[in-house]
Design a protein around this nucleic acid. Sequence first.
DNA 1: TTGTAGGCGTTATCAG
DNA 2: CTGATAACGCCTACAA
Lengths: 349, 349
Amino acid sequence: MVAESAGVDVSTVSRVLNGSPDAVARAASTETVALIRDWAARLDYRPNPHAKSLRTARSNLVGVLVPRLSDIVLATVYEGIEDAAARHGLATFVMNTYDRPDEQRARAELALSRRVDGLIIGDAHSDAAFVDEMAARKIPFVLVSRHAGDHPSVTCDGYRGGRLVAEHFLQSGHEKVGVIAGEPFASTGIDRTAGLVDHYRQAGIEVSVVHSAFDTAGGHEAAERLLRRRPRPTAVFAVNDFAAIGALGAVRDAGLRPGEDVAVAGYNDTPLASELPLPLTSVRSRTHDMGVRALALLVSVMEGGEPASERLDPELIVRASTAPGHGRRAGSPTGPRLEPRMTAVRPRL
Amino acid sequence: MVAESAGVDVSTVSRVLNGSPDAVARAASTETVALIRDWAARLDYRPNPHAKSLRTARSNLVGVLVPRLSDIVLATVYEGIEDAAARHGLATFVMNTYDRPDEQRARAELALSRRVDGLIIGDAHSDAAFVDEMAARKIPFVLVSRHAGDHPSVTCDGYRGGRLVAEHFLQSGHEKVGVIAGEPFASTGIDRTAGLVDHYRQAGIEVSVVHSAFDTAGGHEAAERLLRRRPRPTAVFAVNDFAAIGALGAVRDAGLRPGEDVAVAGYNDTPLASELPLPLTSVRSRTHDMGVRALALLVSVMEGGEPASERLDPELIVRASTAPGHGRRAGSPTGPRLEPRMTAVRPRL
DNA sequence: TTGTAGGCGTTATCAG
DNA sequence: CTGATAACGCCTACAA
């Protein structure tokens, strides 16, 4: 189209429109380049991506599998992926798998039938069955958020995150601790739990671990179970902020003062954590960065590389839920005197 | 590929693999059909979507624009879109625009350059500037969540939602009411606010309206402004659950009892609303359904139709934040006696 | 019922 | 430096 209008050959047009700046210089005369660029702009020409993909056998598409996009953690990871993908000229499909193996396979096939150049898998299970299949089929992919087997992955160091919480709890004098460990198939929960458990064990202390769904209701129910144990935990670590919020509610419902009678820490430092009535101690897990790095890693895999996995460093954010009087929300008019007021004369047990 | 293996002509293969059941029956002999199907399965043949799109000038791709995917409301709408799209054999791209007009245009162009067959726009501004441009360019699109101009849209009736809250507040005896109205360019906040304001006006009462960001911090700050007014509001309606959570915090920080001294209602009935320590009254807005319906509407538009917009019905869910003693979280061991305990002997003002 | 041929818009190769 | 040509895989009108 550009070619006809400008009276130039198609191949020249292609060379000008696609080549790197200096390649263009070598490929066509200055006038021809100007002419072609002019017509392309005037007709606002866009190369047809389907024709291009057909010819080059590259779609510049990547598929992304997540357990659930309405989980803010994964949504934020995906935002990172999407940002980075746009910068690389790639487009992304996201799909929910609800952590169900059959859906993982079905969605992956769907993506593959769309001829994606690679896959970012955010819902790997620790048994690695599904990802091993993908690897056996030589499909370029990376894992994000969770790791499995020794496939390339970008994660945030959950083991270290768990230790950070353990150190904080120990320094605060907690010797009876409970962990709400999330789903048993997710490396995130496994690592975070192991980090805390190991650190406590080195101090000669055993902690109670219960599993739960990754949401508020799951955390509430799991915390109830922990609070029934004797001696009762004085600190609870939930491997997810939403579970931690549920735990806060359970503590309150049990007639105890969250933050005072029972310290509660979460994970991921969700935007809500700092804004809760009782601000929540949490471990920042650099979710957006994980997405950005995962896409970079995938690009490297797609280019035939065998890049090393990346493990980002977590950061503990201490707030009032584990340190009464600390970590008040900025901009509050009342200052550190909030907590006593929030918890005044609540009957014990 | 299938053709060579089976020793059949390519066009016959195409006919068998694409045609509707009875078209196939008319197009090839039973044996040939079986033969072709057999080989297709054995080679797990997938038609190349790029070749198909090139030939048919249809990509089966739809672009989705949202303000921000890490907002659970839009994430849930998108889940609905994605579910429905998969059922229609369509694939979707989502992109964040952060409610910035330049990003809206840039992302729409990106989608268009990918040759999407249509667009679902979840971030329309009430001035309709951007969507009018799209319409002028004859691009098939529908709006979701927000409406603008008289372009086809799927929304939940915010005006009615606002009225539902107003009725509930009036029945509870609130005569001094504040509204946290969200961003002024979003039809959602505008309609919800208008519904409440109109209903109160019909009762001869004026309400205070303040704008804010749609997040927790915005709601906190806006509530502080409302609570400084005299006479002080006894009820606050935030057009978004996250803003409502911020408002709950502000009420508490002001030394008042949320739910008792100041009723707080939110909007969207986010999963968190029912799980908060003080369960939040909210208006359910059928976000997932909106996504599903929006995709159906887009399909109709892409087929050349001019379908009418859809307005789904909202539902008020009353909980303890506006009705102390009501709406306790199911499964709690303490029953309706929670609220007095939560708010005991907090100093007034 | 089956086969043939042309073209969708690119890019790569080869020749001028 | 520029132009012609083939091929990517699919669909469809037309012919047999």
